[in-house]
Amino acid sequence: MTEIKSKKVFQQAFTAAFPHTIPVLTGFLVLGMAYGVLMQTKGYGAVWAVLMSMIAFCGSMQFVAITLLTAAFNPIQAFLLSITVNARHLFYGLSMLEKYKGLGKVRAVLIYTLCDETFSISSSVAPPENIDRKYFYLSISLLDYFYWVLGTFLGSVLGSLITFSTKGLDFVLTALFVVLFLEQMTSRENKISGIIGLAGTGAGLFLFGAENLVIPSMLIILLVLLAGRKRICS
């Protein structure tokens, strides 16, 4: 009886969560396929591409890792580079400490699959009333994870068969971030913090260039947020 009930609770949460992930479905199929195709051209077939997507699940770092797979074997370098490229996840974790509280075993899955897109949705969208919070977040996380793995697989297997031009379709993720940025601009504190994020990263881009902007920008944002804590909260 309880199993049937819990199944229904999950279904309701899944149905509520799915529409929020549609932009990610589009973007991840396109980018995941691009990744699968690229891996293929470097001599890594579907099995390797899908393994990388399933185990590491870290979009932009996976593209960087292609250069590691085609160079001399150096796992220490791979590990350190992965920390650098993925450093932004540290701030996602800090942001989700409260929301992912008290979710039991599911919490580890949510943390394992916490990517840019899942963070964007789960930090912007509150679970609707009467919807189970745990299953709502889990649905968003697992759907996004599945889209990425599916895209990778499709790209590796039939990437060359695509004939229509998908040029510009990956802009769907930029659009997602822009819209969720606007969605978060609700209160005065959030507006100030959002502008600090834009300006801080703009400064990071200007000072350190497109290749190395993330960590300096994170530090700028962190320092400004901490220094202005009293004013932002007032």
Binding site: F91, Y92, S95, S193, G194, I196, G197, V214, L225
Partner: peptide, 21 residues
């Protein structure tokens, strides 16, 4: 200060992601 960052960081990180893209 960690609780404060947890609240203040999401909009800032969305700003970062927009510029990053």
């Amino acid at each position: 200060f960690v609780a404060y960052l947890g609240k203040a960081l999401p909009p800032a990180m969305m700003g970062l992601l927009v510029v990053y893209c």
